[in-house]
């Protein structure tokens, strides 16, 4: 056993990379849920993004086009969910689950010709001498652009929800769609936009897996990351900053677990893998039992809206 082999700096740097896909997807789902919609199809949108991004990046030779395609692919799939739940008023839980099934099948079909191929590489952002600062250089200045983008999106989402009129409207729609409708806001339009955004972010998260983190295409490669993203939104009590915390905590437990093993410690892997979920439940209980503070869950979450009356 040799704990000195575990370098905290490196641990932080690698957990940032490990957490980025779930962070992106969770931020997208945050916006969707803030608008009062529960889309359980994150896994399906992520894997669709992963394959769309991979295919386009390989065909065009440009990872950037790949990322765009991934966002488009995720958004299109999300809009399918949007049309069903918002226009045809289907049940969100069932539709979201069906979306995952659909996305897994679709991605496997698209990806058939892309097995065993290396995608065009994405380099780290060059910060010059900054990258050589001890400790901080490794943590802050030696990542690829998507890691920075995901962090910027955390700040952006936080600011947008809190300080902009559009953010306020979105939250109003999520809190009470009847009231928002009465005020003259287009509830369905706003929700569709939020759903598409959620899909694009999930797609980007998936493409981060297939183009940078792994990088390869294989069927089912998201391996449950979409479900973790859902859990993180809850863990975060629907706040952007805490989404970051939650994603890094989840990623951190995985990376730490592997590092402890590499250092020769016999870790009870199953029990450690359970811990993030148990912690999330605990956080939920603590938050919801404190009745003075609002839980943060949008009041209209998952409820069907129909402007007939």
């Amino acid at each position: 056993m040799d704990f000195s082999a575990i370098n905290p700096t490196v641990l932080i740097a690698s957990l940032m990379v490990a957490s980025t896909p779930i962070l992106l997807a969770a931020l997208g789902e945050l916006i969707v849920e803030k608008a009062g919609v529960l889309n359980l199809g994150v896994e399906g949108m992520m894997i669709t993004g992963a394959v769309c991004g991979f295919a386009v990046a390989v065909e065009s030779g440009s990872p950037w086009l790949g990322f765009l395609a991934a966002m488009a692919g995720g958004a299109v799939l999300a809009l399918l969910f949007g049309v069903l739940t918002q226009l045809l008023l289907s049940n969100q839980v069932a539709t979201g689950l069906a979306l995952t099934l659909f996305g897994l099948g679709l991605s496997a079909l698209i990806g058939q010709g892309y097995i065993g191929i290396k995608p065009p590489p994405v380099g780290d952002v060059n910060f010059g001498p900054l990258a050589d600062i001890p400790v901080l250089g490794r943590i802050l200045f030696r990542h690829d652009i998507i890691v920075y983008f995901s962090l910027a999106m955390v700040a952006g989402t936080w600011w947008w929800l809190k300080s902009t009129r559009a953010g306020l409207i979105l939250r109003a729609v999520g809190e009470s769609h009847e009231a928002a409708h009465a005020l003259g806001y287009n509830v369905i339009g706003i929700r569709l936009a939020a759903i598409a955004f959620g899909g694009a972010m999930a797609g980007l998260g998936g493409a981060y897996l297939s183009l940078i983190r792994v990088p390869q295409w294989t069927e089912g490669m998201t391996a449950g990351a979409g479900w973790i993203a859902l859990a993180i939104v809850v863990f975060a009590s629907w706040r952007a900053g805490r989404v970051l915390l939650g994603a890094y905590l989840f990623g951190g437990v995985t990376v730490l677990q592997l590092n402890l093993q590499a250092a020769g410690l016999a870790v009870p892997v199953e029990y450690l893998s359970m811990s993030p979920y148990l912690i999330t439940i605990l956080v939920l209980v603590i938050m919801s039992s404190d009745r003075r503070k609002a839980l943060g869950a949008p009041a209209s979450l998952g409820r069907v809206f129909h402007a007939s009356s």
Binding site: L209, Q216, G220, A223, A225, V255, L258
Partner: peptide
């Protein structure tokens, strides 16, 4: 088979 986890393990 979990590519992301395998990548993390290799990095560790």
């Amino acid at each position: 088979f979990d590519p992301a986890k395998e990548a993390d393990a290799a990095t560790a």
